[in-house]
């Protein structure tokens, strides 16, 4: 059994809504563990709490209660941040920079030496098929190109753990296939991958384990193998819809 590298216990996040100043619970007693080398996919409808969960794991947001440790340190600890890569949902970048300048800038935030940075930036530009656009300002990039540059920046420090929020978003079929290939290579290299997605075929193909979050609660945490062996569901999408619908009906009955 591999060591746990992400440990989330009883995570609850409440925010005060700008409308009516009401407290809204986004995550509710959310707990999970991800082991080293595992690929974990978090599934959920829009607004289910997937992005909030990732932000709490990175330390961009703080929990109302509960705890998160990444690589044995509290979320947001600088030493663990140096060993992880993060791709935000709908990534926004510095539009005044070129792709090369941006990746070089991100590399420097990790304290990577100039010569090493140059090598790494060129490798990543080639890997993500962005070499031709290296000198172009990012304000001229399409959504798919921005997504690829986002993926590239999350790999600049050769991280041990990757947190990718909707990595396939905005990509065309070729782009999606490229990202799938990269994910498989990273998996083979023993990286731990945590990603949010709506795309069931990708999750089914890439993940070892999945979680389903609905209205801030983790409904399911199971391996893809176990789920596929369960004869009650046609596929992962059927499994997902059945659990979400059940939870929705249950909450309607309760209220």
């Amino acid at each position: 059994m591999s060591a746990a590298v992400i440990q989330v216990e009883g995570l609850t996040k409440e925010v005060v809504s700008s409308f009516r100043r009401k407290r809204v619970r986004i995550l509710d007693q959310f707990s999970l563990t991800v082991n080293a080398g595992e690929t974990f996919g978090l599934l959920g409808l829009n607004g289910a709490g997937k992005t909030t969960a990732v932000k709490l794991m990175i330390g961009l947001s703080r929990p109302t209660s509960g705890s998160v440790t990444v690589l044995g340190r509290p979320a947001g600890d600088r030493q663990s941040l140096a060993r992880i890569g993060f791709l935000p949902e709908n990534p926004y970048f510095y539009s005044h920079l070129t792709a090369y300048e941006f990746l070089d800038f991100v590399g420097s935030l990790f304290g990577i030496k100039h010569s090493e940075r140059t090598k790494r930036v060129n490798e990543l530009l080639n890997l993500l098929s962005l070499a031709e656009a290296a000198k172009k300002p990012m304000r001229s990039f399409s959504k798919g190109m921005l997504q690829r540059i986002g993926i590239a920046q999350s790999l600049i420090n050769d991280p041990e753990i990757l947190f990718w929020d909707e990595p396939m978003s905005g990509l065309d079929p070729i782009g999606r296939s490229d990202v799938r290939r990269i994910l498989q290579e990273l998996k083979k290299a023993g990286k731990t991958i945590f990603f949010n997605s709506h795309l069931m075929p990708d999750v089914n193909e890439l993940c070892d384990r999945i979680g389903i979050v609905h209205r801030g609660r983790l409904l399911v945490d199971d391996t893809i193998i176990k789920i596929s062996k369960n004869g009650n569901y046609r596929d992962l999408e059927d499994f997902f819809l059945a659990h979400v619908t059940d939870a929705e009906n249950l909450s309607k009955t309760a209220s």
């Binding site: 935000p88 935030l109 990790f110």
Partner: peptide, 14 residues
Amino acid sequence: EKKTVYIIFSKPVT
């Protein structure tokens, strides 16, 4: 506003 802080503060930057 442009959420570039997500890029900065997901790195080891104080």
